[in-house]
Amino acid sequence: MDRDVTLNVDELVSKFKKEGHFDRLRKQILETVNEKESGPLLDRLKKIIDEEMVKDRTLKSKDQFRAAPLIAGAVDRSSLYEDSMEHIRSNVLSDQDLREVIYNSLEQIGIEQIEHEDEEKLLNSKTMDGRK
């Protein structure tokens, strides 16, 4: 019986997200990133902005709401995100604890699902019997 049990990965993931685990983790990670990694990140950002200011002198005189998207675009073009994400990936996301947390919650969802399916099967079979 147990061998036949299969689980749909996508369903698992969507359920995981639906139950709010994903957002919780996301916030948590963002916080940790903000604490640990933001220092060098912001330093680099400052450098990029300064460079951009030198490149385009009108930015200084521009309204900040107009200048901000321009700078954001410049940041996008730089390798800041790639580098920092690489860093974050290796430091934060590859954390074994995090993996375990996810795995455990997924397992729980999976078990619940299997139980649920079993119940349904039972119900179905019961009704079938009843009909007969």
Binding site: T6, L7, N8, V9, L12, V13, F16, R99, I114
Partner: peptide, 17 residues
């Protein structure tokens, strides 16, 4: 997509990550 539970968990974990 459809996997036995253990594999599914592992797969799902990587997807979530």
């Amino acid at each position: 997509v459809v996997l036995p539970p253990e594999e599914a968990y592992a797969e799902a974990t990587s997807v979530v990550l």
